[in-house]
Amino acid sequence: MKLVVTGGAGFLGARLIGTLLSQERPAGFPEFTSIVSVDLAACPVDDARVQSVTGDIAGKAFIESVITPDVGAVYHLAAVVSGQAEADFDLGMAVNMAGTLTLLEACRKLPQPPRFVFASSLAVFGGKLPDLVPDDIAVMPQSSYGAQKAIGELLVNDFSRKGFVDGRVCRLPTIVVRPGKPNAAASSFASGIIREPLAGVDSVCPVPTGTRLWISSPDTVIANLIQAAVVEASRFGDTRTVNLPGISVTVAEMLDGLERVGGKDARARVTLAEDERIKRIVLSWPGDFDVTRSLSLGFTRDGDFDGVVRAHMRDHGQ
């Protein structure tokens, strides 16, 4: 059987593929002998068990050539990120909404419903929210990206209700610290104010220091994505959507952690310059969740932010 990962050339997809191939998989994880990475570029994981297929996930013929009868599970991670989806509405709709539907329709034609893990986002939330967001609150996105992800959530839930796929929707916290360079995501600064200063590079924070964020380290997000494919479908109850656990920190607390772990010089490399476009998007996202349900399903979270910074420094020899 094959496992398909859309967005397999990206940071999260490549890390998931590498982890699945290098570590023992938990009991209940779908069996597979190869992984197909679907993206606009080749997957960087160098392994004979990985096949890179490049193309547009919104293309019906392309996706149907990928989703063949021997596909047993799909991780749908590909997306146009938040800032880009807001700037280019048509591109966001084509990839984030139409691409998700195209992929689900291809899975619907398989002889057996595949396990289908969909990466959603905190951007589905908005409006007036309580300080601690409950698991069953209605979504009210305040961006095109958030709306597109909310549509994807509803599609995965309905395709699961109909028995077309065995879906699991994971609302990911903001991932900190992402390696590499900044991207067009509105949340990109959350990694940048840690990653760049630790590398000796100046960074700008575009939101007030009191802004509260819901974050998770890359290792924990990968572990939770793997766990999503393990949980028995019946345990999800009325909805296949789950808010993945994170830790709640303000930007000020993040910078304090940077100074404790990385030193005063690192903290001094961060300057504050508010960006109204980014601030408008980020401030619509909730900063703390009641994750009693997701923890009961076996999902985990980081211990504290200092540990998140240390993990990044360990991974990058700092």
Rank of each mutant, 00 (worst) to 15 (best):
I35M: 08
G72E: 15
P26V: 01
N96V: 09
P30Q: 11
S34Q: 07
A85R: 07
A61I: 01
G99L: 07
E105F: 00
P26M: 02
K60Y: 09
L103I: 03
G55N: 02
K60V: 13
L16F: 06
F32V: 04
F89V: 14
N96T: 02
L16E: 04
M97E: 13
T68H: 11
C107S: 10
I17F: 11
R25N: 14
R49C: 13
C43D: 08
A87Y: 01
R25Y: 05
G99R: 04
I67A: 01
G55A: 04
F29V: 06
G72Q: 12
I35R: 12
L110W: 04
Q51T: 15
D56L: 14
H76V: 03
S65F: 00
P69D: 14
D39I: 01
I63W: 05
D39G: 09
S65A: 08
D47G: 08
V45A: 13
L21T: 03
Q84T: 15
Y75Q: 07
M93T: 14
P26I: 00
S52K: 03
S22R: 12
S82L: 02
F29K: 06
V74K: 02
L16R: 06
Q112C: 12
T102M: 03
V66H: 02
A61T: 00
S52W: 00
P26E: 02
G55I: 01
G83C: 13
V36W: 02
L20F: 12
G92Q: 08
G92H: 09
L20K: 05
V80G: 04
L103Q: 02
E31R: 15
V81H: 13
A48Y: 11
Q51Y: 04
R108K: 14
S82M: 04
R25M: 09
R108T: 12
F29A: 05
V66A: 01
F32A: 08
G28W: 02
G18T: 04
L91Q: 05
L110V: 03
E31Q: 10
V95A: 10
A78S: 13
D88N: 15
S65M: 00
P111H: 09
L110I: 05
L110R: 03
R25L: 13
E64D: 15
R49N: 13
Q51D: 11
R49M: 11
P69W: 13
M93P: 09
V71Q: 01
S34A: 08
A14N: 12
F62D: 01
Q112S: 15
A87T: 09
L20I: 08
E105K: 10
A87K: 12
D56Y: 11
M97I: 08
G99V: 08
V45I: 13
